[in-house]
Design a protein around this nucleic acid. Structure first.
Lengths: 201, 201
DNA sequence: GGGGTCTGGTACCGATCGGTAACATTGCTT
DNA sequence: AAGCAATGTTACCGATCGGTACCAGACCCC
């Protein structure tokens, strides 16, 4: 009897992840696809196969959950850069081009809805929201990294190149959702390389 | 008595605009500054010096009010282009540069919070929201106009230039809110002209 | 097997959401 | 003065919001 009980415990779903991780995963998905303010905590808990109480045992408020959501996004972007550095050691230009390509592929995905972090910034204008400092920290870091790479790549005006690339990507991601993928974003790779080339003289 | 009554009617506020216009004006401000989903209809009616009932006599739902909000934004952008064409007749390049400068000034305003229409796109992912078709219509039109101007200006690859400029602006506006005005957006004018120049060869 | 921690379930809180009914008031037109 | 359309006021609707109290199990480690 006890054997049968354990066997039929949960109907084949039983995500092995602990609740906190399930909640974060599901919240990331919902926040990104539907918008942060459009998703209620109950919907998150349900989708994570748990309930509001457990959610509030792991996150002291919805705002804190949002902040953690941003932190995860930022550290995921961190990982992307590390992998690029690993794949092209001591070759800043290849890292830049690789990043452009990654971004381009990402944007060409029709389910893409822009940069999750930039979207969050749109939805959270309040100056002291716990997520906002995370957002700004990340964007500053991203730009600093770009400048450093542009410098290493030997650009004549590294910070100018970095900014152009930064704006290009940011613009492409925000465009992909108001226009089709047919839009400007499609040519991102070529444009990026052209801009890089024009700074190498 | 009747004279005194009319004199002390409303405490010196009496916006002469009809309620519909007041509602739209106030809604535009609140939607942009706080986000569309963050603003309730009651707050709009209050700020417009009227009440929910009157609001719902002029707009059949909040979603329709949002759609009208987008339409106004689009037609306002229309006006900007007409004025540019009037100021620089038969000079597409000056119109482009003038537009870049306008955008740059706009972004340097610290109260700026990005492109209102792009922000709305972030907050309204639902495919059939009445405001979404307005958003997409406008962005497509904006891009077509840019391509046309770039062609008239004699660019070697007009649609490529148009897209680069489009992404640059869009990126700058979305950046201005997640980073300070110190950010990349500041150099927008110079970058734009550099990009234009590089397409004129 | 007993104890402590984590989780699930349910019911609830006050507040606010978008939206409406019914009625009093205003002001313009004729 | 009468009539009519546009506004203002108030109270209300059901639904949902973020957040909590309380209790019942489940699990694990000694």
């Amino acid at each position: 009897m006890s054997a049968a009980k354990t066997a039929a415990k949960t109907p084949a779903k039983t995500e092995t992840l602990p609740p906190r991780e399930r909640i974060l995963a599901v919240a990331s998905d919902l926040f990104y696809r539907q918008g942060i303010r459009a998703v209620g905590v109950e919907a998150i808990a349900d989708a994570a196969g748990t309930n509001k109480m457990t959610l509030y045992r792991h996150f002291e408020s919805k705002d804190e959950l949002i902040a953690e959501y941003i932190r995860r996004l930022a550290s995921c972007s961190e990982t992307i850069w590390s992998e690029l550095a690993e794949r092209h050691p001591n070759d800043a230009k290849k890292q830049l081009v690789g990043w452009l390509k990654l971004m381009g592929d990402h944007i060409n995905n029709p389910k893409e809805r822009g940069c999750a972090i930039a979207n969050a910034a749109v939805e959270l204008p309040e100056k002291h929201h716990p997520a906002r400092c995370e957002i700004e920290k990340h964007k500053q870091g991203e730009r600093a990294r770009l400048v450093k790479l542009c410098k290493e790549a030997g650009a004549s005006k590294p910070d100018m190149l970095a900014d152009e690339l930064f704006l290009l990507i940011e613009g492409a991601r925000v465009c992909a959702q108001s226009m089709g993928q047919e839009g400007p974003a499609a040519r991102l790779g070529r444009m990026g390389e052209a801009i890089i080339a024009s700074h190498m003289g």
